[in-house]
Design a binder for these strands. Structure first.
Lengths: 132, 132
DNA sequence: CTCACTCCCATAGATTGTCTAGGGAAGCAC
DNA sequence: GTGCTTCCCTAGACAATCTATGGGAGTGAG
């Protein structure tokens, strides 16, 4: 299902590609907190969880996984997928969980910082706390 | 040493550098909606508005400004700064405002998408009817 | 006047992380 | 067998940031 690969908004795509920079590893680590997964399913998980907005290409995904493994944030082992195919299953390590926590915090702070610049006169605002 | 840059070498910086990719032009355009500015003051404005979290280096800023000018999203003219120095003042064009609107929308949607992936099990959940 | 400092602009090259575009193996339906 | 899907991998292209450097010009201290 969900074969709708946003074809119309190619502009959005290329913009998203730039924006993705730096968040991919965080997304992968987060996905692995749900369960161990192989690369292909990680990509699917991210795509589906973002309603098809975030498409991770294989050329980005696998190098990222190798990077994470090299850094000791995930561990890998070969196994068989639900479709009876050879697959490399990744699991997040405790160092990876720590990194995830850090990266998530940095991301949230970054978003807040950007919004601080972008905010004036946006006029559309959820009232969350917002205390000066 | 006037040449001392950001030597604090904190992790946040290098992470932020990656994350910044793709948002810089939006930040610049937004800054210029306040008033016309020269490059140096744009960088200061962004840094101050983000409480010092977003540091735009000159090596990123000026190429970005030239890019924006080439694309017709800002226009430039030489003038004198408040400090009586030669300065190139940038002004956002109507095409630039349109771009800003687009880029801002893409950014907000992107953040929402990322958060959709990052959110599950944060234990702090806004009830936003996200059922299976 | 000279010196140190800040303000302001600019560019070349390194770095990094994404994508594009290829390749391949192996299961399943027909 | 053929064709489609699932799954893995890598090399090179590309884009946007930073580092490092260069310089000009105004200001204030001495």
């Amino acid at each position: 299902m969900t074969r709708v690969a946003c074809t119309k908004s190619n502009k959005n795509m290329s913009e998203n590609q730039k924006l993705l920079s730096g968040t991919l590893e965080t997304l992968i680590l987060k996905s692995l907190t749900i369960s161990r997964m192989h690369g292909y399913s990680i990509a699917n998980h991210i795509r589906q969880n973002s309603s098809g907005n975030l498409i991770i290409e294989e050329g980005s995904l696998y190098p990222a996984l190798h990077r994470l493994e090299r850094k000791g944030w995930v561990s890998a082992e070969w196994g068989m997928s639900a479709n009876n195919r050879r697959a490399k299953y990744y699991r997040i390590t405790s160092a990876g969980r720590k990194q995830l926590k850090t990266k998530t915090a940095i991301w949230l702070q970054f978003v807040e910082s950007i919004n601080c610049v972008l905010k004036p006169s946006t006029t559309k605002q959820l009232s969350k706390d917002k205390r000066t």
